[in-house]
Amino acid sequence: MAKHSLIALVEDRPGVLNRVASLFRRRGFNIESIAVGHSETPGLSRMTIVVDGTATSVEQVRKQLDKLIDVVKVTDITEDGLVARELALFKVKSTSATRSEILQIVDIFRANIVDVASDSMMVEVTGDEDKVDSLFRLLKGFGIREVARTGRIAMARGAGGPIVVEEKPKRARPKRVKGAEEISNL
């Protein structure tokens, strides 16, 4: 019962992030990360909120979030089996002596070099938190100047989306593709 991923679909209005953050602070819930962006529905943003389920009652968090008028729907997708990803940028010190070693590591992690300066390189990596953490640990030895991480975004596996917003005529659900897990694990 460690990390929980909550997906909140919220109205795309000024102040909504503030309402969500304020609620977490006031109720003493701890946010590990929060990532916000557009959703598939115009006018709705999607938040992926990661909370430590041992520290707070996730169900209380979910219900309190759901009470906010601007929050349309909250789902805890932790149990559903999910794909979680994070994007990180690392600015790593490099010299002519270390450059090729860094490149090798970057290669193993299927990360990319996105900028090169005379004494540093910028590495871009995508993956789950473990992968990002591991790369970070390996690069730390060379000296890291700057780190930027997006925090987790997540999506439940399978065909069903967590959210049904507007009641539209029901369409046949697309069949679940066999082997989808394997594909998404790549």
């Binding site: 102040g15 503030n18 309402r19 304020s22 609620l23 006031r26 906010l68 008028i69 601007d70």
Partner: peptide, 14 residues
């Protein structure tokens, strides 16, 4: 005032 009353209103508007 909308910021101040965020945690003590059911909802608020500007």
């Amino acid at each position: 005032i909308t910021g101040i009353t965020l945690p003590i209103t059911k909802h608020n508007y500007l």
